[in-house]
Simulated scan of single mutants.
Amino acid sequence: MNPRLDALLRGTVSAAQANALTPLYALPAAVRRRLAGPPIQIDGNTLDPEIQLLLRANALLPGTTKTDALAARAQFRSVNKLVAGHPRALQRVTDLTVRGADGQLGARLYVPRTGRDTGNGLLVFFHGGGWVVGDLDTHDSLCRIIAADAGIRVLAVDYRLAPEAPAPTAAEDAIAAFTWAVDHAEDLGVDPARIAVGGDSAGGNVSAVVAQQSVVRDFPRPALQVLLYPALDLVGRRPSRDLFGEGFLLTEEDIMWYREHYTPDPAARPTAEVSPLLVDDKALAELPPALVTSAGFDPLRDEAREYVDRLTAAGVPVTHLYHPTLVHGHYNLIPLPGATADALVTLTAHLKAALGPAS
């Protein structure tokens, strides 16, 4: 690379460390493409150049190694501050508590400026982070955007994390929180028949479990299951793990580290409460409609595709939003232009159509 461009990129990364990615993406598109480097093509897909630039910047930051869970959580919070963008204004954002599987859990209700006092749609949202990291703050910007642009209420739930609370605690907390939301629909100002469950990555995992267990345990079913590049199988391994397990934000090392922390007992991994992709076919037939997203450069891509195929074969209405140029975690990369921003617009448009206010 040209030394002057390299110096410019390093200077911009220094600004990013101060929570300012904006200057990097304010550069002319031609400059950004030069900084990103030659196109990366794998398995017939070409990586989005704006994502490639972010990965290049990330490679210039000091390396970090996951040690203990507390350090990993602090690192995850710091990284998310860099890519959160400016918080979207809403009618109100309220912290509250909801029922978990064993006691109360922190939660946050996002109310858009559109909507009514009652009868609104609601997404009960569970954050990603490998069941080990992540919290209400790491996904605050995403929840605000969903609420504002889809015109729906969002209830984000701070479920208990591993290793302090190993599997299937996160899933059981999610089940309890979802049923709490249905029980308290009037208090939340929403229609109990229009409550969806969703989340990204590990949050997509527990959301899939909630949908499945609503059938198995016969509690109210979600109006929609929203699975954003979900982790669905902690046992099997598919080609995308080998293709994209290094250099695309979520690495193979990350996946194994999260798995060991969430499921220290390997016997838990093949259960439906931990690996919802492995559930019996009979449990799929009565599931609510699904909105599933996947990314072309995501090591979890193939398990999402497989679940889409299984749901479709079982007769479940499925919308699959596949973004071939993007990586795992792209909905949290708020300041990025181009394909990343377009994917978020597409997501909120689908949520608005499914749960938003009547026209």
Rank of each mutant, 00 (worst) to 15 (best):
A223P: 00
G37M: 10
E273H: 05
A196T: 06
A181K: 06
L278C: 08
K81C: 00
P23A: 03
A71V: 05
G85L: 05
S240A: 10
R56L: 02
P276L: 03
V308Y: 06
L24Y: 07
R144G: 13
A69I: 01
N2F: 11
A15G: 04
P357L: 08
L321E: 08
I334E: 06
S78G: 05
H127D: 00
A285S: 12
A267Y: 07
D95Q: 12
R92N: 13
S141C: 04
A30P: 00
F248C: 09
L54R: 01
V226E: 07
A148N: 12
G119E: 09
R153Q: 13
R77A: 12
A165K: 04
P112N: 11
G356R: 12
N80M: 14
P222D: 04
L250W: 06
Q75Y: 02
G63L: 13
G296Q: 00
T97K: 14
P49R: 10
P230G: 04
G199Q: 10
A162Q: 00
T169R: 14
R77T: 06
G121A: 00
E164A: 15
H328A: 08
V279I: 05
D95K: 09
L53V: 05
I255W: 00
G189Y: 03
L243G: 08
D218W: 02
V226I: 14
A171D: 03
F125A: 14
S294F: 01
R92V: 11
L96G: 00
P49K: 11
A72K: 05
A313N: 02
L60K: 01
D342M: 12
K66M: 12
G151N: 07
G106S: 14
E303F: 08
G296M: 00
K66T: 05
A267S: 12
V157Y: 11
L9H: 04
I40M: 02
A181M: 04
I152T: 04
A202L: 02
R241S: 11
V279S: 15
D191H: 09
G100H: 11
Y331H: 15
T12E: 14
V133M: 11
L228I: 15
G37D: 04
L311G: 03
L105H: 03
D218M: 05
P270N: 02
D6T: 11
A101T: 13
V182G: 04
L122D: 10
P49A: 09
R88E: 15
R77D: 09
D200Y: 07
A71K: 08
R32Q: 15
F244W: 11
F248T: 08
R194T: 06
A343H: 10
H261V: 06
L278I: 04
L60T: 11
L321S: 02
G329D: 08
N45K: 10
R305K: 12
W180M: 11
E253K: 13
D173H: 03
A165S: 15
H330M: 13
L232I: 01
G121Q: 02
G119M: 09
P112W: 12
T346A: 14
L96V: 12
V98E: 07
R237H: 08
T312A: 06
K282A: 15
P62Y: 01
D68P: 01
N332L: 07
F126S: 05
N120I: 04
A16H: 06
R56I: 00
A29T: 13
D218G: 02
D280Y: 06
